[in-house]
Amino acid sequence: MLTKLIGYEMKAFGRIILPLYAATIGMAIIMGVGIRVLDERLFSTLLGAVIIMIFVSLIIATMVMTGLLCVQRFYRNLLGNEGYLMFSLPAGTHQLILAKVLSSLIWALLGGLAGICTVLVMGLAAAPMQDTIRFFKEISIHLRMLSLGKEMGAVAVWFVILILVFVSALMHIYTAIAVGHQWTAHRVLGSVLAFFGIGIIRNTIGSLVGQIGYRSGWADFFLERFDGNLLLSWQFQVPVIVSTLLLIAVYSAVTWYFLDRRLNLE
């Protein structure tokens, strides 16, 4: 059931996002060819300025649209008229929520991938073939060196942290929408107020836990072992991972409670 729900979400997202990806990559090719033909002169021509403006606008539009869709697919598809369809499916509420989170995460990651592709495509279009081959050779040497060192492990952990922070931020919004939906009227306003209210509660609890940590001395366990290297430090990464996972768990439980036990579709 979850796979089917995610598949449906991918289609709903894709019909809007994929044309934006295609347009962005298309503009990257045009820019690359422009650089190859005109060199730096491209940037001083009117045509060049227009191409850059369209290219930047497309990148911004793709990012904004991805963010908007992550929120809108939850709000409209679950709590708008389409909610009558979604909540009538033989799926658990947890599956409906999880499908939204996972599909949003997949599209965020695909967005990053599309960004990398855009840069590569532009580079390929702009540079002569021998330069491109040399560039890829250098990249592969760097990657091989990196994979041998412990930096690669740290980068992987930071990547996991990035994903967890994204999910936590998304669940913060979803929780606010679920809480705001309890209002009989002005549900959008309710959701906005809930968003800030939840943020205040989270920050207050966070600083209280921090203070307790310092006063009781258990924070010293991490601080004493901290070698000053933020990138490689597990003493910094572990508390971030644990606290973010806790936040996600709390957000998920609250969202599920309001959508399952207190659901009142208009």
Binding site: R15, E82, G83, Y84, L85
Partner: peptide, 13 residues
């Protein structure tokens, strides 16, 4: 249960 709501509930796209 097969349910028909009193409104348009299907994705228009």
């Amino acid at each position: 249960v097969s349910y028909l709501p009193d409104r348009d509930f299907l994705p228009a796209w």
